[in-house]
Design a binder for these strands. Sequence first.
DNA 1: CTTGACACAGAACGCATGTTCGTGTTATCA
DNA 2: TGATAACACGAACATGCGTTCTGTGTCAAG
Lengths: 254, 254
Amino acid sequence: MMMARKRKKGLSDRQKKILEVLDRFQVDPGYPPSIREICDATDISSTSVVNYYLEQLQEMGFIERDQHVSRGIRLLVPYEEAVSAAGSALESVSSGLKQTARNLRQAVDELLKIPISGRIVASAPVPVPQSDFGYYDAESMVEVARSLLPGREKGSTDLFALEVSGDSMIDAMVNDGDIVIMKPAKEVRNGEMVAVWLNDRDETTLKYFYLENGRVRLQPANPTMNPIFIEDPSVVEIQGKVVMVIRQVGGLPS
Amino acid sequence: MMMARKRKKGLSDRQKKILEVLDRFQVDPGYPPSIREICDATDISSTSVVNYYLEQLQEMGFIERDQHVSRGIRLLVPYEEAVSAAGSALESVSSGLKQTARNLRQAVDELLKIPISGRIVASAPVPVPQSDFGYYDAESMVEVARSLLPGREKGSTDLFALEVSGDSMIDAMVNDGDIVIMKPAKEVRNGEMVAVWLNDRDETTLKYFYLENGRVRLQPANPTMNPIFIEDPSVVEIQGKVVMVIRQVGGLPS
DNA sequence: CTTGACACAGAACGCATGTTCGTGTTATCA
DNA sequence: TGATAACACGAACATGCGTTCTGTGTCAAG
């Protein structure tokens, strides 16, 4: 959002200093600085001030940040170029040659081929694949841009895809025919969406998982629906966690 | 100390995999992986095993580590060189430079960058973009594999993305935060999903569209919900058709 | 058969690290 | 002059993360 008022155009001294630190850390030690290392290097005494400036630099297009990740900062523009571009009061860096270069550099790595290991239905456990995907051919792969994956999963090599069969996942806001991208998991954090097999009901369901005081709460994605509470966590067999849902809208509804 | 016994010369499969992960992380996300991210990317379930291998790789001279620092790993030798130095045949190198170039060109073509032109809410018409996307920068693009698009849209150049804001699209099986990929359209075929602005209700909705005997039926994606019938088609302003929905499942539900 | 090296694994711990909150100061604008 | 935004800061919290410990299984050598 455009600020109503700014002290001056271009980059402030502290912004420039932070960009210079980001630039310098690429060379030595060869990885981005932490927030506290930026503090130290810029004589800023508070991590929240560094965070404040990093958010500005991200909004201006000079850096990218990955949230809740240590050292999750990418310098998008070389320092000298950023400082000189800022001299012309840029609000964001144009796509230009830099973006093209980045596109070419990252193109191969950006496109993941994820095997489709089967279908997910309510009446059977999830077909979690074996670890070796070598035998999958192109027709049983789904291609996903790496950038669409949540930050934590961008480096994953064991994702698999399932095609949804039937209307039983409606409470998860997942439609017949949707593709669910999953990661094998036997345990998850509270708040993550999981596929669970409820062995007392012979049923698979997709829900947000919470373990609260020894009891499991399975929260539907549809905010108008009520959670399931399960007193005995052993009936809940976690089969994987959901990282992404893809709906190709083309055909007629069934 | 020289090991008394080694299974075989050169690098083990896991060492090679770890080096490959270190190499790949330099490109995306642009900073070294954490120990746990190396775990995830190599199917090693224990951080101590990763630590065990990293210590070996450091001792062998392939990497440097800074202690008690997150992501404190520097790759000293490019992956290909490390692996060939270790005396192992490398599948990716053996594929040939020509094939690599061919893959690179194909990958660029396979990965579409679609501009995010705004948010879709119930209370306002859809922000359909102008035809020239040149001014969009990387932060307002979503990357989608061309193969995921419905057949008819694979050649489209005018797709745009919207981010869903609020719970008002639940009947379309679309969640707050989802990304909807759309194509500009003023007319659609029966059975296609559209974004329509109902100017008698000041409301945007996503539904399957049918024009039947001069009357519009708007069918929710959720099969348990009833359609809307509109006798006067002129109140239905088609703003675009939905070709894809993407849900990134990561954070806690709102 | 025993032994020791290697490979692997889970768990726990403590520190590293990012985010958020509340508060204060200063510059700008109407 | 008062209101407001920008700038600045300390503290606290929660999570990310590296290291260490303990244990188990496999296998080659003696």
